[in-house]
């Protein structure tokens, strides 16, 4: 595929870079979360960690095919909260997946039907992983995302919704020191 200049191509590259950034922070975050989990939950964290590495490679290739330079992962990421136990590890995994839902939904907003379909699959995959960690569901994954550490509207049934993406408190690349 050749590089596509023009606004649609630029929007696609920006959305793909956003998804890549979310995948990169998920790879880092699952590395942290997995260290605090055991048994079936650790196995799930490892499975998801591998899935996010694969997704990162896919997005990297898609950006390359568009003649864009994939933004590399940061060396370290600032976590939205301290993780030192299984409960906060699960909360982190939920934040990572919620952030991915929002990032992939950005691809659904593009005009290219193939990227829309790709984005929809990404939203679905992230929402499924988030629901598995939560044990409950959201009405609008990627659109209405609860604050970190909150179980979300599903459990309370309140129907209250948080502001749209990006979810607050997502892991952000640490500023390089010095």
């Amino acid at each position: 595929m050749t590089a596509r200049p023009g606004a649609p191509g630029r929007a696609a590259v920006a959305a793909l870079q956003a998804a890549l950034a979310a995948e990169n922070s998920a790879v880092y975050g699952y590395g942290v979360a997995g260290a605090h989990l055991a048994g079936a939950r650790r196995a799930a964290a490892v499975r998801n960690w591998v899935a996010h590495q694969n997704a990162r490679d896919t997005l990297t290739a898609m950006l390359g095919a568009r003649g864009a330079e994939p933004v590399p992962a940061a060396a370290a990421y600032e976590l939205p909260f301290a993780v030192h136990g299984a409960a906060s590890a699960v909360s982190l995994a939920i934040v990572l997946e919620d952030r991915l839902s929002a990032a992939y939904l950005g691809l659904v907003g593009l005009s290219d039907p193939a990227l829309r379909a790709f984005g929809a699959r990404g939203v679905r995959a992230a929402a499924l992983r988030a629901a598995a960690w939560r044990g409950s569901t959201l009405a609008f994954p990627g659109l209405d995302v609860p604050a970190p550490g909150q179980p979300g509207p599903a459990t309370t049934g309140s129907g209250a919704t948080a502001p749209a993406s990006p979810p607050p408190g997502s892991p952000t690349p640490s500023q390089p020191g010095g």
Binding site: L105, V108, G109, R116, A127, L128, A131, S136, P141
Partner: peptide
């Protein structure tokens, strides 16, 4: 675009319902 995003979000929500 914005309706497509809403549909994708609802579809994902329904996939999670099936999971639960």
């Amino acid at each position: 675009p914005s309706l497509a995003q809403l549909l994708a979000s609802i579809s994902a929500s329904e996939a999670t319902h099936a999971l639960i």
